[in-house]
Structures are given as C-alpha cells and as structure tokens.
Design a protein around this nucleic acid. Structure first.
Length: 878
DNA sequence: CTGAAACAAGTCCCTTTGTCAAAC
DNA sequence: AGTTTGACTTTGGGACTTGTTTCA
C-alpha cells in the first residue's frame, strides 16, 4: 500500500483552487487507476474509493475539536466526506461508468464548499492500493525491424570480408615461411609421414601430429589482446552516437596490414583470433589445406535487453580480459587438468610422458623465441597464470578461460571423410561441441559459422557446431521471408565453390544428417516453430496434426509429433481460390469462428446478432480432402456463371470446359455487340478500406467464338488506334502552329520596331516588359488560341504611345470585350502558305476555319497599321 | 537462485464480390 | 444516354515479439 499525503493550503482556498484540487483528486484516484479500484464501506453506509476516515485523522480531528472550538470543522467534515464530488461519484455503483459524472452537480457542490470555511490545517492521509507497474512493452516497428536487419546484414558482409582478408593472409608465403621456420623438424617429419597415405592409420598419425602442433603453438603464441566479440545493437546506438569508442578493446585486434600479421607470428603475440588465423597459416605451410573457420559475430537484429546485456557484459569483462590475456597459462592448466574430458586431447594430460622432452625443449628456446624480452614476459606470465589457474581451478573458474573461440580451423581427414575442427588456443582436436558458446554468452553468439577454404571459397558449416540448430541457432539468423527468399543463402552462394567436389557433397550430406538428427529440445517453448518437432499446443488456427502418428516422444506428458505431420487447413472457399474443391462426403476436420473483414459481412453479422443468431463457423479441410477443381461445361455457348454473374478464374485450370479465357480488358463490349454470351473473368481481389473488389481481367466465352471475337477486337483496336493517332497528330500540328506563329510574331516585331526604331522604345519599356513575361509563356504553352489572342490584345493596349496604333489598340479592346473568339490580332502576321494549307485541310478544327477567314479579312484591311504595332514585341529573356 | 512458462502489451497482417454521384 | 471514375471508410482477431512476473 502506498500512502499519498495531501496537505491542504493553510489559509483560505479560493474557489478556483478548490475546484482544481478536487478535480485532480478525481483524476488521480479513480480515472487513472482504472482497474485497481478498491471500494470502501463507510460508517454511514455509503461507499467510496477512499478509506473511511474513522481511523487516524478523524480521531485526530476529534481531539482537535476538543482542544479548539470549531463547529466549522464538523460542518466541513460533512461536506468534505459526505458531499464531496468524489464521494458522490462513488455512490453510483456502476463503477465502470466514470464518464457519466454529472459535472453540473459537482460544480454546485464545489461552489458550496468553497463558500464555506477554510480547510483545517491538518494533514490528510489518503491511502489506496498501489497500481500495478505499467511497463511499456516497446514493440519493434516494421521500419525499425527492417533497419536492424539491414544493419545486421551489412555487419555480416563486413565480417565476411574480414574473414576473407584474414584467410588470404593465411596463404601469404612470407607468413607461411616464417611459420615453417618455427616448427621443429621432428614435428614436420611427423606431418610428412601422416600425409603419405590416406588410411585410418595415417589419419591417426595426423591427429597426433596435430595435437603436438597445437601444444607447441599454445606455448609459442601468447595471447595479449582480446579478439572480436559480439555487440548488442544499442552499443552502436544513441548513447554512443553510432560508433564504438576507438579506445575500445575491440580495436586491439585491428591488424592494419599483412605486415602486422607477419610480425605477429614472428613475435608470437596477438589476439586469440590472430592466434587461430596464424595457426591456419602454419597448417597450410605444412601442406594441409586447412580451413579458417569463423563464427560471425554480427550485431543482433532482435530488440536488445539493454540492462541485461550491459550488466552481464560488465560483470564478465574483468574475467574475460584476464582469461584472454592469460590464455597461454590457462592452456597450461588445461593441459594438466582439463583435457581429459576430450577424447582426442586426453593424451596431453600427462606432461611427463613421452612428449615431455619436446615440451621441455620449448622452455629451452628451441622453438625460436623472437626476443628475450618476450620470452621473459611469457615465462613471467606462465608463472602468474599457473597460480591463477590453480586458484581458478579451485573456485571452478576454469570454464571461463575455456570459453569457445570466434576463430578456429578445420582440417579434412580423407580417411574419415570428415572435417575435424581444431582450436589451437585450447589445443582441441575434433571437439565440435566445445566450439558452441553458452546460450547466455553475450560476447559470443553462435549464429553463422563459415569456413574459408584455402582457395577462398566460403561454406556455411553452422550445423556442425550448433547443437540446437532448429530450436535456437536458426532463429538468430536473418529470417527466410514468406515467399522463400533466404538472404543469407543467396549471399553465400556468391562465394560458394562453383563446381562440385566429392568431399563437399559428403560434407553436405553429413551436415544435413546432423540437422535432421538434432536432439529434442528439453523445454516446451523450444518446440515452438521447431523445424523437426511439433506439439499440439503450438498449432495455429489453421493447422492440424495429421496423421496423429507416430508419436516420437513425450515432454511433460505431451506427445511430440514430427513437424512434417503438421498440415495446413483451409476453408472450402479458400481451397477454391487455390483451384481445388472439397471432395464429396468429406467432413471438416476443424471448425473455427469465421472472421469478419468486410463492411458487408460486418453488417450481416450485426443483423444476425440482433436476432441472437450464433456467429457463423467455417469448416476447415486438409489438402488431402480436396481434388482439382472440375469446371462446369459450356452448353450451347452458354457460359456458366457464379452468383455474381462472373466466372471464377483464379487459376487457368478453372476455365469452364469448352470455354476459353480471353485476358483482354474491354473485349466484353465486343462480345455484347455480337450477342455472344460471356462472363467476366475474376482473377483475384483488391482490398481497399475494408472493401473487397473483384479484379476482372478479360472474359470467358465458348471456344467457338474465340476467333471471331479476337478478329473483331483487333479490328476495333486498330480503329481506335487510328483514331488516337489522328487525334494526336492534330494536337501536334496545333502545337507546331502556335510555335511558328509565336516565332514569326516575335521576328516581325523585332525587325520592325527594335531594329528600326530602337530610340522609341525607351519610353514605354518598363511597362512593356512587365506585361510580357506571362504572355510569353502563354504564347508557347497556352491552352487555347483564345488565350494567346488575349495576350496580344493586352500587350497592344499597354504599348500605346504611338498615334498610328492607338486606333488599332482601341478597336482591338472593344472587340475582345465583345467577343473574344473573334479577336485574332496575330492574324496580322505573315503566315507561310503551306502552313495555312494544313489548317485549311483540317476541317475538323473549328478554330482554324475562323482563323483563316479572319486572317484574310484583317490582313488586307489593316495591313499598314498592323506593321507598326509596337506591342507585339517579345522580350528575349529576363 | 535460475530458467521455463505464463501472462501482458504492443505491432503487423489478413481480409476475398459496393454504392452513389459526378464526369465523360 | 450510357459508361466510367472517384470518393467514401478505416475492424479486429490472431500471430508474433518482447518484457515482466511467477513458479517449480
């Protein structure tokens, strides 16, 4: 219970203030709290959401009455707790109808209250139930999801590129030469021996050789930096202004060039990732075409749990850093303590066995140590780490130092026809299960494991390492879209080996086998959308398990079925849209409540509910209960239609027997003209604003009419086309005419007035310019001739300082006011004969006839005057 | 104490056959 | 005169996801 203390103002409370206070009380306690209302029974029998005040502060007030005088308090008490608005509201037992507050009554009471006495100087305690904490489950929006997925994809590509570069460096001759120079001769000879022949015996030699090589590498290469780790989305986000600080540990693994890579192997220091990469170089230098394997740590596109991610990481950071810096030591500890659990690493358990000699020689600097300093460092580290690891061992801290890697290698064992994984840092050979990080490991998320081959090709080998591929790992990847588009698959296909190799096919088969033989999940939720297993409880509305055999397991008493027995169901109508019909005699397997989507259906449902009718249910059928839709035949040229007068043509196979679908819109008109029976072909539906509109594409007619209709259609179409062409031609010519006219006007006026009489221009120039800019555009782009003519008229009017054109100007204005269409001042211009002829021929254009007539008339009449018009001049450019 | 399950709350998707008036 | 076009309107349940609480 939460207490809220409301301390009334000490002195008089003015009217407005009181009102506010009470309104806020109403708001806070009743409306906002919504569900968590608690109704208290008062001593007078009334109810309210407030605790009765007979307890604490009523007692207090009674004592106050004793001590002071104040009958005021009593009256106030009555008003405040029996007549106050909150109380009034709660007398209405219908607690849901808060909006039915009669505010006028409230106001009256508030008025009464404020007009009475000042509130007592007391503390009022109102106690009510603590509302449940309302958290906002911030759903990720579609756009945000898309952004995140794109970031994820971009990151994946970057990581792929990173891996490709490092893989290329592993092939660097210099690096391999350095590597070879570091390896003891005996060990090289062992590899040579192992590679002589492909059989189990030699394969076992290779395993031993690899183990020895790992051990040497572990001693040789000191891990001094952390490598790549997974990042939460928000670490790139708002707080960090989109980037990770450059002093961040992640940048420590940033090898700027291959020279740094080479230096790293000669010095024997670097990150754990570099260690694995260099180990691949070492293997390749020995003639083993090892793969560089990387678990791509792309930023997750899922909504990050900020706090959790952050705290987990923070908590782990110290340990992690220690773990990685002291890795070589942990290896020591591992060697003595941890390897026993791995079948192939067991031999390394006892250091004083046959291999002790070689290992001692490591301390004797036989495995070239690049500098004294680093050797001393390493020894010092070994000592301290030995202590650490012993401590850790006692406190069970070994596991952290044993964390699965981001980079490792794979070596192909032809004898076993398998790729064996090798983690050189932990000296593990063929322990794929040890590469999978814990599911709660924030720094290492296993989602995409790619192998970079020596020849540069890339292959996805995730299934070899993910123990819960279907239940977990798959869900961390870019999802395959509903139409089956798999971005990751397509992306990798660009880097895949373009030709098939036997060993690749074998590997694919093996990976597939691993996928389908994945062990069953142990939690119910992991069965949700599992690709192999299904529970009845997770079935969707339109799903069923058929047949209900076999039951392949049980979890908490629930039978587990294979996912392939989960079948999709549809209503009979939906099946029809798929071009299938329910076979006669089949009963629905499941009944579901029909959903109402369209306005029409909603209205029908509302009507039904008025008569208390049951909401309609629809039966669902499986595909095996349906058959291919058998269309009705066309008899005597009569096309069978549905209740809407159409023909369902969702699939071409649904075309009535003896009929043909002519997918041409508008051909129905032709059919109608010929009196041929036809039906509009409905090929689908459009949805807009809750309305369903059939999409009609062409018609269905009897086959015998097809040729005739098509011919008629082509004829009609060509006719329409010709008409359109003619129309277009007319439009084009009109535009040309206007253009040429305009140019001629301009030229003429320019020649007559600008060239010959430029001194006269100055007088009316500014006015002139003002009126023209608009006119110019109209001359070229104007819609009608009329407008063009008006323009000319106006311009002429404005220009008038010349005696000669005065008369013309006035005359024109009068004409334009009386009848615009007859005002064609442009007609005064010279028009080339052939152009005019075009217009004359085109009798369909009314305007041109008028124009031609006018032209003759005016040209002859006003020739001399027209020549002197100033106003027709058109300015070149602003 | 931890992890799974249940629950809550948010977003997205699915849907599957009109009518009327004005303009052309 | 007949045809075409455009405006009108705008649910809600299930799936899915994420976050919190509860419980074994």
């Amino acid at each position: 219970m939460t207490g809220v203390l409301i301390t009334p103002v000490e002195t008089f409370i003015d009217k407005g203030k009181t009102k506010d206070n009470f309104l806020s009380l109403v708001d806070n306690t009743s409306i906002n709290k919504g569900k968590s209302k608690e109704i208290f029974q008062h001593s007078d029998g009334s109810k309210s959401i407030f605790e009765p005040i007979d307890s604490f502060w009523l007692r207090k007030r009674k004592s106050a009455i004793k001590h002071n005088e104040s009958s005021d308090i009593e009256s106030l008490e009555n008003q405040e707790f029996q007549d106050n608005p909150v109380h009034y509201i709660n007398e209405d037992n219908d607690s849901d109808d808060w909006e039915e507050i009669d505010l006028s009554t409230c106001q009256d009471q508030l008025d009464d209250l404020s007009e009475s006495k000042p509130l007592p100087n007391k503390t009022i305690q109102i106690t009510f139930e603590k509302p449940k904490i309302q958290y906002k489950a911030r759903g990720i929006t579609k756009i945000e999801r898309a952004i995140r997925q794109n970031v994820h994809k971009a990151h994946l590509l970057a990581l792929l590129a990173h891996g490709m570069i490092r893989n290329k460096w592993c092939n660097d001759e210099m690096t391999q030469a350095i590597a070879l120079s570091l390896i003891e001769y005996d060990l090289q000879a062992l590899f040579d021996k192992a590679l002589v022949k492909v059989d189990v015996k030699h394969a076992n030699i290779l395993i031993i050789a690899l183990q020895d090589l790992c051990k040497w590498w572990k001693n040789y290469f000191v891990i001094t930096k952390p490598g790549i780790r997974n990042r939460a989305y928000h670490e790139f986000g708002e707080n960090n202004e989109g980037k990770i600080a450059e002093d961040d540990e992640s940048f420590s693994d940033c090898l700027t060039s291959i020279n740094v890579f080479r230096r790293s192997i000669s010095v024997g220091e670097g990150s754990r990732d570099t260690s694995a990469q260099l180990f691949v170089a070492v293997l390749r230098s020995l003639g083993i075409p090892a793969r560089l394997v990387c678990s791509l740590q792309a930023v997750s596109f899922k909504l990050a749990r900020k706090n959790e991610a952050y705290t987990t990481r923070k908590k782990d950071n110290d340990l992690d850093y220690k773990g990685s810096t002291s890795s070589s030591m942990n290896d020591e500890a591992q060697r003595t303590l941890g390897l026993g659990k791995y079948k192939l690493g067991a031999k390394g358990k006892n250091r004083s066995s046959s291999k002790s000699k070689r290992e001692q020689s490591d301390d004797d600097d036989d495995y070239s140590s690049p500098s004294k300093q680093s050797r001393v460092d390493r020894l010092r580290k070994s000592c301290s780490v030995l202590k650490n690891s012993l401590k850790k061992d006692n406190s069970n801290g070994l596991q952290n130092s044993n964390a699965p890697p981001i980079f490792w290698c794979e070596v192909y064992f032809a004898a076993y026809k398998k790729w064996f994984c090798i983690d050189p840092v932990r000296a593990l050979v063929n322990s794929p299960q040890a590469m999978e990080p814990a599911s709660n490991d924030m720094d290492n998320v296993m989602a995409y494991i790619v192998a970079f081959e020596q020849d540069g090709y890339i292959k996805d080998v995730t299934r070899r390492y993910a123990s819960q591929w279907g239940a977990r790992t798959r869900k961390l990847r870019v999802p395959v879209t509903k139409d089956g588009y798999d971005w990751w698959h397509e992306t990798l296909s660009y880097f895949a080996r373009p030709y098939e190799r036997k060993q690749d096919n074998e590997e694919d088969a093996h990976l597939h086998k691993l996928e389908v033989s994945e062990r069953m999940p142990t939690s119910i939720s992991a069965f949700h959308n599992h690709p192999l297993y299904a529970l009845e409880r997770h079935l969707k509305k339109f799903e069923i398990i058929h047949p209900k055999q076999p039951i392949i397991g049980n979890i908490r008493g629930e039978p587990i079925y294979p996912r392939k027995n989960v079948k999709q169901l549809h209503t009979a109508e939906t099946w029809l849209r798929e071009g299938r019909q329910v076979m006669i005699g089949e009963q629905p397997l499941k009944h579901v409540k029909s959903r109402i989507y369209t306005l029409a259906k909603r209205r029908a449902a509302n009507m039904a509910s008025l008569y208390d009718e049951e909401p309609p249910e629809s039966g669902l059928y499986g595909e095996w209960q349906t058959e291919e839709y058998i269309p009705e035949p066309i008899i005597d040229g009569k096309v069978p239609k549905n209740s809407y007068g159409n023909v369902n043509m969702f699939k071409e196979s649904m075309c009535p027997i003896g009929g043909v679908h002519i997918p041409i819109n508008g051909i129905g008109k032709i059919a109608k003209k010929f009196g041929v029976d036809y039906g509009d072909a409905v090929v689908g539906f459009d949805f807009q604003a809750r309305r369903c509109v059939p999409v009609i594409h062409g018609i269905v007619v009897a086959k015998e009419h097809e040729t005739m209709l098509l011919e008629a259609w082509h004829e009609y179409a060509s006719h329409v086309e010709a008409m359109n062409d003619a129309k277009r031609e007319r439009e084009v010519l009109t535009r040309w005419r206007r253009l040429i006219m305009g140019v001629q006007i301009r030229m003429r006026l320019y020649n007559d007035y600008v060239k010959q009489d430029s001194s006269d221009m100055e007088e009316g120039e500014s006015e002139f310019y003002h009126g023209e800019s608009e006119g110019e555009s109209e001359l070229y782009h104007g819609d009608t001739e009329e407008e063009d003519n008006n323009y000319l008229v106006n311009v002429v009017n404005k220009s008038g300082s010349n005696k000669l054109h005065e008369t013309i100007g006035e005359k024109t204005i009068i004409e334009s006011n009386n009848d615009k269409s007859n005002t064609n001042f442009s007609d005064n211009m010279d028009i080339e004969d052939d152009f005019v002829r075009i217009e004359e021929n085109d009798t369909s254009t009314e305007g041109s006839i008028t124009w031609d007539d006018k032209d003759e008339e005016m040209y002859t009449e006003d020739k001399n005057e027209a020549i002197n018009i100033e106003g027709g001049f058109i300015r070149e450019k602003e």
